[in-house]
Amino acid sequence: MHSTSYIIRFTLIMTLIVAAVLSIMVSGLKDTHTLNESVYNKKGILSAVANQLGKDVNSLTSEEVQTIFEKQIIQKALNNKGEELTPEQIKSITGASSVVDIDLGKENKKPADQRVFPLFVYKSADNKTYNILYTRGKGLWDEIWGYITLDSDLNTIAGQAFDHKGETPGLGAEIKDNKAWYTQFTGKKLYNQAGEYKSVAVVKGGVKDKDHQVDAISGATITGDGVDDMLNKGLAYYEPYLKKNKK
């Protein structure tokens, strides 16, 4: 039988060793962790312009991702009037030091006139401009989000990428994994011919409106509705900006 003082000493020494080793590891790996995280998020954005890049986004190294972001992408942040914000304004409103760090989930909880929306403008090698819009909503279990790339007419969808926090593998998670599903969005239009905002709807039982509807995933009704709702509401926030820049 060990004495109480031995037990206390044992516990203290053990706690100290464990805490020391872990803190050394954490501080040593901190930079790698933040770099990995930012590259992961940036790759998520680049997946929306995978067609224009002509490369598989997952095969890019972190340096390549950083150079694409430096040279070909302009990061903007808009308010709900479609005006661009300066870095100081972004910092004071959202607390984020760069556009990539803006937490859209938090923004969506604010009153509409105080929200900030990130926008990424991608210049392809053949000098075309693509606007990448960012939208976030709720799926079945948790948050889902998507990046929608608009062609230079600011109407036709030229690329898309969806992701989720915890949808069911094989059902809701298909929004990220099933290429046949998400490529349906390419070529769809946000505005109808009269110029009214229509968004793109996720529908069951066959697409009737070729320009504004995609087929739902069977078995993932709620996630599909979530995508529908997220696109409809989230992309509408960019309307003032799109109208202003449309020729």
Partner: peptide
Amino acid sequence: IPKSIRMIVQLVIIAFLVTVVELALKA
């Protein structure tokens, strides 16, 4: 290892190793 706190000591060893794995994998 003191017998009376055996379980917790074992769990701390495991949790420590798991944290190491997590930090490494994240990097």
